[in-house]
Measured scan of single mutants.
Amino acid sequence: MGQARALMGLSAQLDEELDFREGDVITIIGVPEPGWFEGELEGRRGIFPEGFVELLGPL
């Protein structure tokens, strides 16, 4: 779908969440519900709030 750069780090609180560090580039693979993305980073998949990232182009 597209890519996004992390504006800040996120520590996953639930198993389905993706954790990442500020500056990581995450591949967006879905939008499971409004306000959330599903992404992949370094072979890991999970969901995260859209406010933690900036899109690097259209989805």
Rank of each mutant, 00 (worst) to 15 (best):
L10Y: 15
G9A: 14
L59C: 07
R44H: 07
G2N: 15
S11E: 13
P34C: 09
L41I: 14
V25A: 07
F20V: 02
P32W: 03
A4D: 01
R45Y: 06
L55T: 08
E40R: 10
L18S: 03
F48N: 04
E17H: 15
G39T: 05
P49Q: 09
E54H: 09
P34A: 12
G46E: 00
G9P: 13
R45A: 05
E42Y: 10
I47K: 14
R45S: 08
R5Q: 06
L59I: 09
G2K: 06
R44P: 00
I29D: 07
I29L: 13
P34H: 09
G30H: 03
R5I: 11
V53Y: 04
P32S: 05
P34F: 03
L56V: 10
G43F: 02
L18Y: 04
G2T: 14
D19P: 08
G57M: 11
E38L: 15
P58I: 02
L56Q: 10
I29Y: 10
I47Q: 11
G35S: 04
L10K: 15
P49W: 02
L14T: 15
D15L: 08
L10S: 15
P58V: 08
A12F: 02
E33T: 07
F20C: 04
I29A: 08
T27M: 05
P32V: 08
L55R: 05
G39C: 04
L41V: 12
E50M: 09
V25C: 08
R44E: 06
F48H: 00
E50L: 05
G43Q: 04
L59Y: 01
P58S: 08
G35M: 05
L59M: 13
G2Y: 06
F37D: 03
L41P: 07
E40A: 09
P34L: 09
G2H: 01
E17P: 00
L55P: 09
P49H: 09
I26T: 04
I26H: 05
F52N: 11
L14W: 10
L7S: 09
S11L: 07
F20R: 04
E17Q: 13
G35W: 01
L14E: 14
R21K: 14
F37H: 00
L10F: 15
V25L: 14
E22S: 10
V31T: 13
F20P: 02
P32A: 00
R45T: 13
L10D: 06
E42V: 01
G23L: 01
G23H: 04
G43K: 04
G30C: 02
M1L: 12
E22I: 11
W36F: 14
D24W: 03
G35V: 00
L56H: 05
G39D: 00
W36G: 04
V31D: 06
P49C: 00
P34I: 05
V53D: 02
L18G: 02
L7E: 00
L41N: 06
F20K: 00
G35P: 00
A12G: 13
L14D: 15
P34T: 13
A4P: 04
F20W: 03
F52T: 14
R45L: 04
V25T: 09
G35R: 03
S11A: 12
E40V: 12
D19C: 13
L59S: 11
G9D: 15
P34D: 13
D19G: 13
G51R: 15
E54Y: 07
E54G: 03
E40Y: 10
T27W: 00
I28N: 02
P49L: 04
D19K: 12
G43P: 00
L18D: 06
E40W: 02
R44V: 04
R44K: 13
G43C: 03
L41K: 09
Q3H: 07
F52Y: 15
L14A: 15
D19V: 08
E54N: 05
F48T: 05
L10A: 15
E38Y: 13
L55H: 07
T27Q: 13
P49S: 04
T27Y: 07
P58N: 07
T27C: 05
L59P: 09
Q13T: 13
P49Y: 02
I28C: 02
L10N: 15
I47P: 04
L56Y: 06
G9V: 05
E38S: 09
P32R: 12
E16T: 13
P32N: 00
E17S: 12
Q13G: 11
M8D: 08
L14Y: 13
F37C: 03
E16Y: 14
R44G: 03
V53M: 01
P58T: 09
R45N: 07
L41M: 04
L14H: 15
L18I: 07
Q13C: 10
M8Q: 15
I28R: 02
L55K: 02
L59Q: 14
D19E: 15
L41Q: 02
V31G: 05
G39P: 07
I26D: 04
R21H: 10
I26V: 08
R21N: 15
E16P: 09
A6Y: 00
F37E: 01
R44L: 01
V53S: 02
F20T: 00
